[in-house]
Design a protein around this nucleic acid. Structure first.
Length: 232
DNA sequence: GCGACAG
DNA sequence: ATCTTGTCGC
C-alpha cells in the first residue's frame, strides 16, 4: 500500500535537529485508540550490510502473537549514525518496508526510543508522527535520562527522567536480565505502552515483535501460518 | 574541555 | 549496527 508521506531526509545535521524540534510539537502524548480493539501489532527493526540498510516489519496477531505478515526493504545508507538522529539513518528504509506490507497493523513497536530523546522525537515518535499512527519506542539501551534500577520481577519498572520530565520507563521484562527502555511514540500514553510491550513479551528480554523483526532484518525466515515450535 | 551517546 | 570464540550459568 502506498503511504501518503512526504518527508525530507536529505538534510544536514543542523537541519535534521531543527526539523525534529518542530515535529516533536506534533506528537500526541495521549491514548487515542481503544486498547481492547487492538488486533495486530507490528515489530520494526533495521539491520546493516555494508552500505545498505535492511528494514524489516513483522505483523503479529494480538494477543496470540502469531505472525501474520512481514515485509522488508533494502535502501542505500545516506546518513551517518549520529546519536539522536537515528530516524534520518533508518527512517527511509522503514517506510519502504511498511509500503510493502499487505496487512496494515493497529500499532507499531520500534526497536528504538520514542519520547526518551533529547528533543522528544526518537525514531518511534518521528515515524509515528509522519504516519500519524500509534507507535511505541522499545530500546535495548539508554539514550538519555536517569533512573533508579527497576525491581527484579517481570513487569517492574522505574521512571526515566530527563531533568524534571518523565520521558519513559525502564522495564524489567524478565527476572535477572537487563531492563529495556520503553517510551511513547505517538498517540499512546506510557502506561498503555508498557502494557503492550509486556503483553508482547514471552520468554525473552525483548518482545516477540522486536525478535521477529530482528530475525527478518537479518535475513532469516519467518514461520507465517505455521505452528510455532515450543523449544522451552 | 571532557564524557555520553538508540542502532 | 557490525567485526568475532569461547565461555559462564540455568
Amino acid at each position: 500500500m502506498k503511504l501518503a508521506v512526504s518527508h525530507p531526509w536529505d538534510l544536514s545535521v543542523e537541519e535534521a535537529r531543527a526539523l525534529q524540534a518542530r515535529l516533536a510539537a506534533q506528537v500526541i502524548a495521549e491514548l487515542t485508540f481503544d486498547p481492547a480493539a487492538i488486533q495486530t501489532i507490528a515489530g520494526i527493526d533495521v539491520g546493516f550490510r555494508g552500505e545498505i540498510a535492511r528494514a524489516a516489519v513483522v505483523v503479529l496477531r494480538f494477543p496470540s502473537l502469531e505472525p501474520l505478515d512481514s515485509a522488508c526493504a533494502e535502501v542505500p545508507i545516506t546518513f551517518p549514525y549520529v546519536p539522536g538522529l537515528l530516524a534520518f539513518r533508518e527512517g527511509p528504509s522503514v517506510l519502504a518496508a511498511l509500503e510493502r506490507l499487505s496487512t496494515w497493523p493497529d500499532l507499531l513497536i520500534f526497536d528504538a526510543q520514542g519520547r526518551a530523546h533529547p528533543r522528544r522525537l526518537g525514531l518511534a515518535s518521528h515515524l509515528g508522527v509522519i504516519l500519524d499512527w500509534p507507535s511505541i519506542g522499545c530500546a535495548k539501551s539508554r539514550l538519555i535520562g536517569v533512573h533508579d534500577p527497576p525491581g527484579d520481577a517481570a513487569g517492574d519498572w522505574a521512571p526515566l527522567y530527563d531533568g524534571e520530565e518523565m520521558v519513559g520507563a525502564v522495564l524489567r521484562t524478565r527476572p535477572g536480565v537487563q531492563p529495556i527502555y520503553v517510551s511513547i511514540g505517538h498517540r499512546v500514553d506510557l502506561p498503555t505502552a508498557i502494557e503492550f510491550v509486556l503483553r508482547c513479551t514471552r520468554h525473552h528480554r525483548l518482545p516477540e515483535t522486536t525478535r521477529y523483526a530482528h530475525q527478518v532484518a537479518a535475513g532469516e525466515e519467518l514461520p507465517i501460518g505455521q505452528q510455532q515450535l515450543r523449544l522451552f
